[in-house]
């Protein structure tokens, strides 16, 4: 099992940013998700976030909504998410789960943390869990030995950044722009400033997500962030592919392009 700590140490030693890829479990199929994520790792992703499909993804744009909807229609359950984590972790990437809070709340915080750790998962990203409500999850994660990642946004004032960062153990997720997930033509101009403000408040690595979709953007972000997070662009490749095999090729291509980007 590769830890987040090891990932960022290695990237730092190679004088580059880490590459983080996102894919929902159960998309395009249960096995297809493991295959796609494994291809992403083989082509250069250091960290994989496995999305836990949720019925009401209110901070996701149309691409992820579409993938999540297909996944839920495929009958993806939490057991499948954990199996996906297990499969992907074997590829050697540090594997996280990204999830809205309610599925964990319902499953039971301690139970989820324990089961995720057993599956080889190294932590979670929880985009709608605020520091005020985070106590049970922080305790459960600590107990299970997994990392916690929370988000900061361009709108976050410095004291809020400090508060959020204090809840993080793996890295801090900086949302590059005000908006939902999805690739954009340009990465938000607020991202660099946000990373700077975040770094002033924490020794943890800071990764930038939202709106990054190609190698040039990855290179641009890698110049100031410790990690580059890409989700919707991978999903788009899979959605646009005529079949699963060509989808894997497309995903691999994109991961290679991004991997070159973070090394520029």
């Amino acid at each position: 099992m590769t830890t987040l700590h090891a990932v960022f140490d290695k990237a730092r030693a190679e004088d580059r940013a880490a590459l983080v890829g996102y894919l929902p479990a159960g998309f395009p199929t249960k096995d297809g998700a493991v295959a796609a994520a494994t291809a992403m790792v083989e082509a250069g992703c250091d960290v994989i976030e496995i999305g836990l499909p949720y019925s009401d993804p209110l901070m996701d744009g149309p691409t992820i909504q579409d993938a999540v909807h297909r996944s839920l229609t495929n009958g993806t359950r939490i057991a499948d998410v954990l199996r996906t984590v297990e499969g992907v972790a074997k590829s050697g990437a540090a594997t996280l789960v990204m999830t809205y809070w309610n599925p964990i709340d319902r499953y039971g915080a301690e139970r989820f943390a324990r089961d995720l750790a057993s599956a080889g998962g190294v932590g979670t990203i929880t985009p709608d869990l605020t520091p005020e409500e985070s106590e049970p999850w922080l305790a459960a994660s600590k107990e299970a030995g997994i990392d916690t990642v929370f988000l900061v946004a361009p709108s976050s004032p410095d004291e809020r950044i400090a508060r959020v960062a204090a809840c993080c153990t793996g890295f801090v997720y900086a949302a590059s722009l005000m908006g939902v997930t999805g690739a954009r033509e340009t990465v938000g101009s607020a991202a660099e400033g946000l990373v700077k403000r975040t770094k002033a408040n924490t020794p943890l690595p800071v990764c930038v997500g939202l709106g990054v979709g190609n190698g040039a953007q990855a290179a641009e972000v890698a110049a100031y962030a410790d990690g580059v997070i890409v989700g919707s662009a991978f999903i788009r490749r899979l959605l646009d592919a005529p079949d699963e095999k060509s989808g894997l090729v497309a995903v691999r291509e994109l991961a290679s392009e991004l991997a070159r980007g973070v090394r520029r």
Partner: peptide, 20 residues
């Protein structure tokens, strides 16, 4: 102060919305 009615309420939203 956290918007709790007993154990209910609160805020479970993206951090981006907290300032608003």
């Amino acid at each position: 102060v956290h918007g709790k009615f007993g154990r209910f309420g609160g805020r479970y939203v993206p951090e981006a919305l907290i300032p608003a």
